[in-house]
Nucleic acid binder design. Structure first.
Length: 108
DNA sequence: CGTCTGACGTGGT
DNA sequence: TACCACGCCAGAC
């Protein structure tokens, strides 16, 4: 298994309950800014085996895009994350602000 | 090895 | 805001 893959799993475990992170965010934290797709692959193949909080990872638009979206929606709602009918989450409100993103909210 | 496949991101329209 | 095209790169085969 690649070091990157291990990093990704470690980062996913750091996502706090009640918050979400995007695939790209996890990829950056794990050292590969362009590795978002790999994060999705890792989730798909390892989340079961390694018991990862896979439901806390969504795309950059704040949407749940997987087939089993209802399952993910339920898991997130149990943690207090609001999701609308379009399977969308308010990232401003629920995104996990990890160390590499401390400039995000300075734009205004 | 070479080729294909995504639970994605970004920039252009 | 929504949609499209293209780049990305670890695994499966």
């Amino acid at each position: 298994m690649e070091a990157f893959t291990k990093n990704v799993m470690a980062r996913i475990r750091e996502i706090p309950t009640g918050h979400v992170a995007t695939y790209g965010q996890i990829a950056r934290l794990a050292g590969k800014p362009r590795g978002a797709r790999q994060v999705s692959r890792i989730l798909h193949s390892m989340s079961n085996k390694y018991k990862l909080p896979w439901h806390r990872v969504i795309n950059a638009k704040g949407e749940i895009v997987i087939k089993d979206s209802d399952r993910q929606k339920i898991l997130l709602e149990k943690e207090g994350v609001e999701i609308n009918n379009q399977m969308r989450i308010n990232l401003k409100k629920y995104q996990w602000m990890s160390e590499d993103m401390d400039m995000e909210w300075m734009e205004g």
